[in-house]
């Protein structure tokens, strides 16, 4: 066990929208709009709104690393710090051989939800839909950055990381958010849970990443699942 990983401190990262680096092309492809159709109202609006998004570090996230006490793939459960998570067999299989777990949370803040509501109130449904999609893509891309920082930090210790997994995906019940947030404890990331395990702000993600000498990324998890409603499938296909 590496001593500097045992202090369990939450590593925080903050990004401006520009630093997240979401491009108009990425957004258009996610929406299944041809980015080369410059006059398509979706493309026109994407360019318009990207120029208007504030440049403060409202997009925040981070992770806390905890040693894994027990990981039972067959039973689909994982124990850390006297808290038991039940991510199910699918996620537990992907976390196999994890010696540590990075619990993460990341939020794009309230801005996207606020803007979406404003557009909906005005009857601008297309604009509302696009703004909501930008919020989802922003928080995922910010988390990509944080995950990449984690990967670099672990590499220095000769450790690998897995992909990230969240309650609500890959058959991990959303209700497990309660246990996940209990494990995360106090963090500087302003995300709270409702009674129905919905994260507020809505454009937030949370979950776990496995860490270990022998863990690996499972390239084919999404291909096998094929849930067309899942944001990860949509991002992969964009």
């Amino acid at each position: 066990m590496l001593s500097d990983m045992q202090n369990n401190e939450f590593q925080t990262y903050g990004y401006t929208f520009k630093e997240v680096g979401l491009t108009p092309g990425e957004i258009a492809r996610f929406l299944k709009v041809d980015p080369s159709e410059k006059e398509h109202p979706a493309n026109v609006f994407i360019h318009e709104i990207l120029n208007k998004l504030p440049d403060n570090k409202e997009i925040t996230g981070g992770y806390r690393i905890l040693p894994v006490d027990d990981l039972n793939v067959k039973e689909g459960r994982l124990a850390c710090n006297n808290v038991e998570l039940n991510p199910g067999r699918q996620v537990s299989t992907c976390l196999q051989k994890s010696e540590y777990i990075a619990l993460f949370v990341c939020t794009a803040g309230d801005i996207f939800t606020g803007l979406t509501r404003r557009f909906n109130r005005r009857g601008d449904s297309l604009e509302a839909y696009i703004t909501d999609a930008i919020g989802s893509l922003t928080v995922e891309k910010a988390m990509d950055g944080i995950q990449s920082q984690l990967e670099k930090a672990m590499k220095k210790r000769d450790l690998q990381i897995t992909d990230r997994y969240s309650p609500g995906y890959c058959n991990w019940p959303v209700s497990e958010q309660k246990e996940l947030f209990a494990l995360l404890g106090e963090t500087p990331v302003p995300v709270s849970l409702t009674g129905t395990c919905l994260m507020i702000p809505i454009k937030s993600i949370s979950g776990v990443i496995g860490i270990g000498k022998e863990v690996r990324k499972s390239k084919y998890a999404c291909a096998v699942c094929g849930d067309e409603n899942c944001i990860y499938i949509k991002i992969i296909k964009k």
């Binding site: 299944k32 709009v33 979706a42 009857g123 297309l126 696009i130």
Partner: peptide, 14 residues
């Protein structure tokens, strides 16, 4: 067609 096209159609209908 996808959601943006559906929303454009709805706007025209509205």
């Amino acid at each position: 067609v996808f959601v943006p096209q559906m929303l454009l159609s709805a706007k025209a209908m509205n």
